[in-house]
Design a protein around this nucleic acid. Sequence first.
DNA 1: ATGGCCAATATGATTGGA
Length: 274
Amino acid sequence: MVVNPAHRLSDMRIATWNVNSVKQRIDSLTAWLAERSPDIVCLQETKCVDDAFPREPIEALGYNVAVHGQKTFNGVAILSRFRFDEVTPRLPGDAADEHARFLEATISTTRGVLRVASIYLPNGNPPDTEKYTYKLKWMDRLIKYANERLDLEEPLILAGDYNVIPTPRDVHDPAAWSKDALFLPRTREKFRALTHLGLTDAIRAVSDDPGHFTFWDYQAGAWPKNWGIRIDHLLLSPQAADRLSGAGIDKHVRSWERPSDHVPVWADLAIDPE
DNA sequence: ATGGCCAATATGATTGGA
């Protein structure tokens, strides 16, 4: 899906992609970076410690790399053609939470300042366990964080794998997902509480159509059957949404060799040079 | 929704993912 084919040179392109192991996906990642040419990229499920992150092939393409990983699971990163100003790991609100699921960066550019967060929101399945409790608490922390950041009235992008299917239009078969942690009413209610703070879902700002998916399960032939869901989102503060000029989902990447089960999502912001 | 997957781990079975 490409909503704005006329990409302006002055636009800033920001993307998010759950790569499901950055070491397994490094060749696909560099190929996609060359193809889509994003300025800023939020990655999730990097699944490696910081020392093992394959920085060199990414830096060779002109990106700065900020990482917050851990052994085996989770892990987030931000790639940027612009220099990082501040880089801060961990979502506030629970000092005991050791999961590497959040990384915030501020980026000073000749076009202004942007604040970006790479988010890997907990899956929460099965819903009758502490995993779902953790998900809901994590969402409460994210709402509090977003509320505080929105007070700054800056261009802010919260990009990542939210593990939330916002509406029935975002899933091939709503009934099949009705008892899943990604689509339960309490999950969707908390996501609405987040967006209702004043955040704009970039894809929904450019299209109301059903069938815009970002994830297809590896199992049961979900990809060839197009049994997908939309769970990777770019949420924009008003100051960022005012400048939204286009957004899209790089669905074709799912058909590449040894793909991630998620595909990249991107948005263009018309931020003019100073 | 599931017959069918994928990634990491001192691995050959288990856990987590969605």
